[in-house]
Design a protein around this nucleic acid. Structure first.
Lengths: 213, 213
DNA sequence: TCTTAATCGTGAACATTGTAACGATGTGAA
DNA sequence: TTCACATCGTTACAATGTTCACGATTAAGA
């Protein structure tokens, strides 16, 4: 509770849990720090440090109990109750994400979608209804949603983000290609697809060495 | 050339360029570090330091010439010639990304897609042909592609990544929900959608304060 | 029981990344 | 021409994040 958990640590914990869940039942019910380290490609020191914040204790001869780790990480990462999420902008990317997240984490539920395009409104995507933008505040309050996925075009992203915050949203996963200017108490996680791809080509080029012919 | 550019710096440079390009023609042809800083939400020191690596020089009374910055960043981020990219796994997410990247950066061209599903093979997506997996190595060599976008299910991601590397790929943008184990000279940029959304809900919850009622 | 061998938990060293500070510089006004 | 002023370029500093190193711990085997 009092321990503050950094972004990086949380990322790794989330990943640890996912890999541990995959492994559960397949291998030994225990795992050593160096084994988990190999799976996620970090050092074993890093793993042990991260596990420290979960309050989980390992055993020097058996390692950590996988089930305990999963549960302890869950206590940090998950809320007590399932978290309701909304998605704004159900174009190709938006509906692909709707599809992607559907049923992936039991505690994260996309409860509503929003779009401005009339032909999308009132349609059902993965069992989730798409509303018009005018219903945004009402639906978000009704669903007690605190987090949103933003997949609208860049030129309207800021304005939509403002509406979300007004409606009570406190965390945004932003796929729009512009930085959002929002109050400091709103957490924004940016997924910048263009920059990511540019990074890949840049470092690929570096490691590929001199261009051939 | 000899200067080594960190991941973080490259991310910011990519973003600077994008915002500067948007601004070009609309505002003054010059910009101060603090103005750019406000746009991307970093400190002006950070901006000036990042610009240092571009070799671009500003003027204490006018600031930086926007065009010069865009060009200088391009010399770092872009290759001399357009970079060919391939996409593997043209499901919903894959085709949404195909759509997203289509024509977005002139220097990054998706030249081929691959999938194992017969009904997708030989179809055209955004003017780009989808090939079967057996053609992967040949097409990648023919197109001189060094970077790939990976949007296949987690259970085949590693195997597909191995094939990509064998075919000459040196950078992968990985959307599959598993870490890839590849040689050190292959750059992997991970977009972990689940972890990202978990982060958002975690920090949203923290800043939302105590749960209401 | 005692030894051995591997791993854990954690303080301290180290590396990386971001911020602040400050002399240098260029322009407009007196 | 000289002064005032805002910003740049760069170095020094601070904060954050990662790795090292080592005593503590556990269980298996002699």
């Amino acid at each position: 509770m009092t321990t503050t958990i950094s972004k990086r640590t949380l990322e790794r914990l989330s990943l640890y849990r996912r890999l541990l869940s995959d492994r559960l039942g397949k291998e030994s019910p225990f795992i050593f720090s160096h084994q988990l380290a190999k799976l996620v490609q970090v050092t074993s020191s890093q793993v042990r440090r991260d596990i420290m914040v979960t309050g989980c204790f390992g055993n020097p001869t058996r390692g950590y109990r996988v089930e305990d780790l999963i549960e302890a990480i869950g206590k940090i990462v998950d809320a007590e109750e399932p978290q309701n999420v909304v998605l704004v902008g159900i174009g190709k990317l938006g509906s692909a994400l709707m599809n992607h997240f559907h049923g992936r984490r039991p505690n994260l539920r996309i409860k509503a979608a929003f779009d401005s395009s009339p032909e999308r409104i009132n349609r059902i995507y993965q069992g989730v209804r798409c509303y018009g933008m005018q219903d945004l505040a009402q639906v978000i309050r009704d669903e007690s949603a605190y987090a949103a996925i933003l997949t609208v075009p860049g030129d309207v992203a800021q304005q939509v983000a403002n509406q979300l915050v007004m409606a009570g949203i406190r965390g945004i996963l932003n796929f729009a290609p512009v930085p959002l200017h929002l109050p400091g108490n709103v957490y924004v996680e940016v997924i910048d697809l263009t920059t990511s791809l540019e990074k890949v080509t840049f470092f690929a080029r570096q490691s590929a060495g001199a261009q051939v012919s």
